[in-house]
Design a protein around this nucleic acid. Structure first.
Lengths: 101, 101
DNA sequence: TCGATAGTTAGGCGATCGCTTGACTATTTC
DNA sequence: GAAATAGTCAAGCGATCGCCTAACTATCGA
């Protein structure tokens, strides 16, 4: 699912979708790339759960799924804060060494 | 840099590093994988700016860089909240339609 | 100084990625 | 119902990924 965010074109699509649903060709328009290529990217975003889509008539409408994004966000946040807490404890320890009582 | 987080082995390394610096072989130990493979993963983490390392004597010590992680976190957070704000506005709009004053 | 330890370089190999073109299938719209 | 529209399937191709082994270098410890 980080996999899905690994490609710039796909991140572009997510940016577009973050401001509202879009059809496949709308997603494709700014992307200088064939439609099938866009579909493949879309498939990866769907595989990662970041995007869902449904087809009505001949147009497929894609929309973002914030839950999965929030999961990714949490994962990163946990690693980061764990590291930062560690730095803080280290700082405390060094301060205590330097000025014991 | 999302690229760097795309592989499970690398995420494992980041998890390990989030609880403190480690040598290359410490990172490799839980990973059922040859040392050169670990080095390649490490190189990608460094390329993505997520990890830095320095060699003293014969051991290379790796540590996490929270800044870049925080950047990724922000990117995700922005897309997600933008989408959620949109949903809120839409909800308000629908509520207003249903009960106009 | 000799051997063990920690890491590095190089080459190779199969799988996946990112993209293309060409052909085809549904839906509108006129 | 013919032509434009919106999307899909399939095959193929070069580049990159993820992994390996083999060979090598640089330190450290006894």
């Amino acid at each position: 699912m980080f996999q899905a965010l690994a490609d710039p074109a796909r991140r572009g699509m997510v940016e577009r979708l973050s401001q509202g649903p879009a059809s496949v060709s709308e997603l494709a328009r700014p992307l200088d790339m064939s439609l099938p290529a866009v579909m493949q990217h879309l498939a990866m975003l769907e595989a990662g759960g970041i995007v869902t889509s449904e087809k009505v008539g001949r147009v497929r409408t894609c929309r973002m799924n914030p839950d999965v994004l929030s999961l990714a966000e949490q994962w990163i946040n946990q690693r980061r804060t764990q590291w930062e807490r560690r730095l803080d404890r280290l700082g405390d320890f060094l301060a205590a060494e330097e000025d014991p009582k």
